[in-house]
Protein backbone atom coordinates (compact mmCIF):
# COMPACT_ATOMS: atom_id res chain seq x y z
CA UNK A 1 0.00 0.00 0.00
CA UNK A 2 1.50 3.40 -0.92
CA UNK A 3 2.11 5.94 1.84
CA UNK A 4 -0.82 8.40 1.67
CA UNK A 5 0.45 11.86 0.80
CA UNK A 6 -0.86 15.38 1.37
CA UNK A 7 -0.16 18.12 -1.16
CA UNK A 8 -0.92 21.72 -0.18
CA UNK A 9 -0.94 24.45 -2.81
CA UNK A 10 -1.25 28.21 -2.23
CA UNK A 11 -0.55 30.07 -5.45
CA UNK A 12 -1.38 33.05 -7.61
CA UNK A 13 -1.09 30.78 -10.65
CA UNK A 14 -4.02 28.99 -12.32
CA UNK A 15 -4.90 25.86 -10.32
CA UNK A 16 -3.80 22.72 -12.17
CA UNK A 17 -6.89 20.60 -11.48
CA UNK A 18 -5.92 17.92 -14.01
CA UNK A 19 -2.47 17.71 -12.46
CA UNK A 20 -3.98 17.27 -8.97
CA UNK A 21 -6.17 14.43 -10.28
CA UNK A 22 -3.03 12.75 -11.63
CA UNK A 23 -1.23 13.27 -8.28
CA UNK A 24 -3.90 11.46 -6.25
CA UNK A 25 -4.59 8.68 -8.75
CA UNK A 26 -3.01 5.41 -7.66
CA UNK A 27 -3.83 1.77 -8.42
CA UNK A 28 -4.31 1.11 -4.69
CA UNK A 29 -7.21 3.54 -4.57
CA UNK A 30 -10.31 2.90 -6.66
CA UNK A 31 -11.92 6.31 -6.24
CA UNK A 32 -10.88 9.84 -7.10
CA UNK A 33 -13.18 12.73 -6.23
CA UNK A 34 -12.78 16.45 -6.64
CA UNK A 35 -14.48 19.66 -5.63
CA UNK A 36 -13.61 22.87 -7.44
CA UNK A 37 -14.93 26.26 -6.34
CA UNK A 38 -15.07 29.00 -8.96
CA UNK A 39 -15.79 32.73 -9.00
CA UNK A 40 -19.55 33.18 -9.46
CA UNK A 41 -21.14 35.96 -11.46
CA UNK A 42 -23.65 37.45 -11.02
CA UNK A 43 -23.46 37.52 -7.23
CA UNK A 44 -26.34 39.04 -5.25
CA UNK A 45 -27.81 40.30 -8.50
CA UNK A 46 -24.71 42.15 -9.71
CA UNK A 47 -22.24 41.14 -12.39
CA UNK A 48 -18.83 40.50 -10.85
CA UNK A 49 -15.87 42.05 -12.67
CA UNK A 50 -13.27 40.27 -10.57
CA UNK A 51 -12.39 39.19 -7.04
CA UNK A 52 -9.07 39.92 -5.36
CA UNK A 53 -8.20 37.10 -2.97
CA UNK A 54 -5.91 38.08 -0.09
CA UNK A 55 -4.44 35.38 2.12
CA UNK A 56 -2.11 34.78 5.05
CA UNK A 57 -0.05 32.26 3.14
CA UNK A 58 1.92 30.63 5.96
CA UNK A 59 -1.22 30.17 8.05
CA UNK A 60 -3.19 28.82 5.09
CA UNK A 61 -0.68 25.96 4.84
CA UNK A 62 -0.73 25.40 8.61
CA UNK A 63 -4.53 25.24 8.55
CA UNK A 64 -4.49 22.95 5.50
CA UNK A 65 -2.46 20.54 7.66
CA UNK A 66 -5.13 20.86 10.40
CA UNK A 67 -7.81 20.11 7.78
CA UNK A 68 -5.91 17.12 6.40
CA UNK A 69 -5.39 15.70 9.90
CA UNK A 70 -9.11 16.09 10.66
CA UNK A 71 -10.14 14.46 7.38
CA UNK A 72 -7.75 11.55 7.82
CA UNK A 73 -8.96 11.00 11.40
CA UNK A 74 -12.51 10.53 10.11
CA UNK A 75 -12.03 9.01 6.67
CA UNK A 76 -9.89 6.34 5.08
CA UNK A 77 -8.14 8.43 2.44
CA UNK A 78 -5.42 7.79 -0.05
CA UNK A 79 -3.78 10.93 -1.40
CA UNK A 80 -5.15 14.42 -0.80
CA UNK A 81 -4.63 17.77 -2.52
CA UNK A 82 -5.82 21.01 -0.93
CA UNK A 83 -5.27 24.05 -3.16
CA UNK A 84 -6.26 27.71 -2.86
CA UNK A 85 -5.54 30.41 -5.38
CA UNK A 86 -4.79 34.01 -4.36
CA UNK A 87 -4.67 37.24 -6.35
CA UNK A 88 -7.09 38.55 -8.97
CA UNK A 89 -9.58 36.05 -10.39
CA UNK A 90 -12.17 36.55 -13.10
CA UNK A 91 -15.63 34.95 -13.08
CA UNK A 92 -15.43 31.25 -13.88
CA UNK A 93 -11.85 30.84 -12.67
CA UNK A 94 -11.13 28.21 -10.01
CA UNK A 95 -10.31 29.60 -6.57
CA UNK A 96 -10.17 26.40 -4.54
CA UNK A 97 -9.78 22.69 -5.18
CA UNK A 98 -10.03 19.62 -3.00
CA UNK A 99 -9.01 16.39 -4.68
CA UNK A 100 -8.90 13.08 -2.83
CA UNK A 101 -8.46 9.41 -3.54
CA UNK A 102 -9.64 6.49 -1.45
CA UNK A 103 -10.09 2.75 -1.75
CA UNK A 104 -13.86 3.16 -2.06
CA UNK A 105 -15.94 6.10 -3.30
CA UNK A 106 -17.60 7.18 -0.07
CA UNK A 107 -14.47 8.44 1.68
CA UNK A 108 -13.19 10.46 -1.29
CA UNK A 109 -16.63 12.02 -1.82
CA UNK A 110 -17.00 12.87 1.86
CA UNK A 111 -13.49 14.36 1.92
CA UNK A 112 -14.60 16.85 -0.75
CA UNK A 113 -17.82 17.80 1.03
CA UNK A 114 -16.35 18.02 4.52
CA UNK A 115 -13.16 19.56 3.18
CA UNK A 116 -14.82 22.54 1.48
CA UNK A 117 -16.89 23.23 4.60
CA UNK A 118 -13.77 23.20 6.79
CA UNK A 119 -11.81 25.27 4.27
CA UNK A 120 -14.45 27.98 4.51
CA UNK A 121 -14.17 27.89 8.31
CA UNK A 122 -10.40 27.66 8.68
CA UNK A 123 -8.43 29.11 5.78
CA UNK A 124 -7.38 32.74 6.38
CA UNK A 125 -8.44 34.14 3.01
CA UNK A 126 -10.48 37.27 2.27
CA UNK A 127 -12.36 38.22 -0.87
CA UNK A 128 -12.54 41.78 -2.20
CA UNK A 129 -15.30 41.73 -4.79
CA UNK A 130 -15.53 44.33 -7.51
CA UNK A 131 -18.66 44.91 -9.60
CA UNK A 132 -19.64 47.88 -11.78
CA UNK A 133 -21.35 49.60 -8.83
CA UNK A 134 -19.18 48.83 -5.82
CA UNK A 135 -16.01 47.38 -4.32
CA UNK A 136 -16.51 45.49 -1.07
CA UNK A 137 -14.86 43.03 1.27
CA UNK A 138 -17.11 39.96 1.28
CA UNK A 139 -18.66 39.28 4.68
CA UNK A 140 -16.84 36.40 6.32
CA UNK A 141 -17.27 33.54 8.71
CA UNK A 142 -15.85 33.51 12.25
CA UNK A 143 -16.70 29.98 13.30
CA UNK A 144 -13.01 28.97 13.53
CA UNK A 145 -12.50 30.74 16.83
CA UNK A 146 -13.91 33.19 19.38
CA UNK A 147 -13.80 36.70 17.90
CA UNK A 148 -12.54 39.70 19.84
Amino acid sequence: MPEPKNIFVVSSEVLDITGYMTEVTDPAYGAVASFVGTVRSPNLGEDVLYIDYEGYEAMIKTQMQVMADELRARLELGHLVLAHRLGRLAPGEASIAIVASSKHRKDALLACQTGIDRAKDLLPVWKYEVNPKSKTWVKGNSSASTPL
Binding site: Y53, N141, T146, L148
Partner: peptide, 21 residues
Protein backbone atom coordinates in the same frame (compact mmCIF):
# COMPACT_ATOMS: atom_id res chain seq x y z
CA UNK B 1 -9.03 32.64 22.11
CA UNK B 2 -8.51 36.39 22.60
CA UNK B 3 -7.54 35.84 26.25
CA UNK B 4 -4.48 33.78 25.28
CA UNK B 5 -1.24 35.26 26.59
CA UNK B 6 1.49 36.14 24.13
CA UNK B 7 5.04 34.83 24.51
CA UNK B 8 8.40 36.20 23.44
CA UNK B 9 8.84 36.04 19.69
CA UNK B 10 5.21 35.24 18.89
CA UNK B 11 3.62 36.30 15.64
CA UNK B 12 0.08 37.46 16.37
CA UNK B 13 -2.30 38.10 13.52
CA UNK B 14 -5.57 40.02 13.60
CA UNK B 15 -7.98 39.60 10.73
CA UNK B 16 -11.66 39.80 9.80
CA UNK B 17 -13.86 36.70 9.65
CA UNK B 18 -12.58 34.61 6.75
CA UNK B 19 -14.25 34.41 3.34
CA UNK B 20 -12.12 32.01 1.33
CA UNK B 21 -13.18 29.28 -1.03
Amino acid sequence: HPDTLLSEGDTVAFFPPVSGG
